[in-house]
Design a protein around this nucleic acid. Structure first.
Lengths: 154, 154
DNA sequence: TACTGATAGTCAGCATACTGATCAATATTG
DNA sequence: CAATATTGATCAGTATGCTGACTATCAGTA
């Protein structure tokens, strides 16, 4: 019988599971309470001030229904602001707050440390190769999930 | 700034996201309603008749609290049976049913097809290399998640 | 301009995953 | 053997992630 270890899907799930655990551990140790998902959203909002939720979702490949809750929690933590767009009354503009900026700055070392730890079994060259192969597989499968990556910025 | 595409954690999440979508699509097209998680549990129960939930969790690296719900749903679908262990009244023995066996047999082509599709951007050699690197990274990080792999069979 | 279609956001519902707690039962040890 | 520690399972609570439905709004067109 085919072993779990021969199933890319199973390996994907396991690697992601470890990645999340490492992220939460490092960030938690640094004194912050941010999930990987919240971090990616926060960093993307900072890099694209005033973007709306659909655009944000496309930039990080989240489902638009998932974004709602993530944004809720970031607002609750006072890291971002959500306000109605003057140009489109359906849309909400997202803006990072000063506290969000501060948090992002202070959390960065922990985030980078986490990325290193989750690759700690690999040499630098292997780590690079793993990321290259993941990027390539992801690019080919982008349209297969409900939440594909969309590089378009309005 | 560091791009998302340079973060192994983000790539892990994205690849897993696509892997799940592909699995559900293939299995659904084949006329079945099984998640990747349920499939792995079912296949492992078939391969290890009478195992208890903690052992099952260890074999597929699930959290023990997650297993409870997964088992519930497999029982509900009549694919497995859960009964008290005669040797340890705390434990539940898990056994695949005839319908579970039938389902597993008929679903296998779709599952294998899904594994191919999620690697479709890679050559055969690259696919092998990706799996090797994932296995290696996972092995080094096994103890970092709350639900590590445990090969022990009682 | 009225109609049609598309889009932004939200919601209910379901299925992983985790934290931390609890209960029952088993193991260990003084 | 009695006290203690450990273990198997479950539960409540929280956070992704998805499906499918819905509202409000906008855009394009007849």
């Amino acid at each position: 019988m085919k072993d779990n270890n021969d199933m890319p899907g199973h390996l994907a799930r396991r690697f992601q599971q470890i990645a999340v655990a490492v992220f939460l551990a490092e960030v938690g140790e640094a004194g912050f309470d941010l999930t990987p998902v919240q971090y990616a959203a926060l960093a993307t909002i900072k890099a694209n001030p005033g973007l709306d939720q659909v655009t944000l979702a496309g930039l990080i490949a989240y489902d638009r229904t998932t974004i709602t809750g993530v944004i809720d929690r970031l607002v609750q933590k006072n890291l971002i602001e959500r306000r109605a767009s003057p140009r489109d009354r359906r849309a909400r503009e997202l803006e990072i707050t000063d506290e969000g900026r501060r948090t992002l700055r202070k959390i960065t070392p922990a985030v980078e440390s986490a990325q290193r730890i989750m690759l700690r079994g690999l040499s630098a060259k292997e780590g690079e190769e793993l990321m290259r192969l993941l990027r390539k597989a992801i690019a080919a499968g982008n349209e297969l999930s409900r939440a594909p990556l969309r590089q378009t910025l309005a």
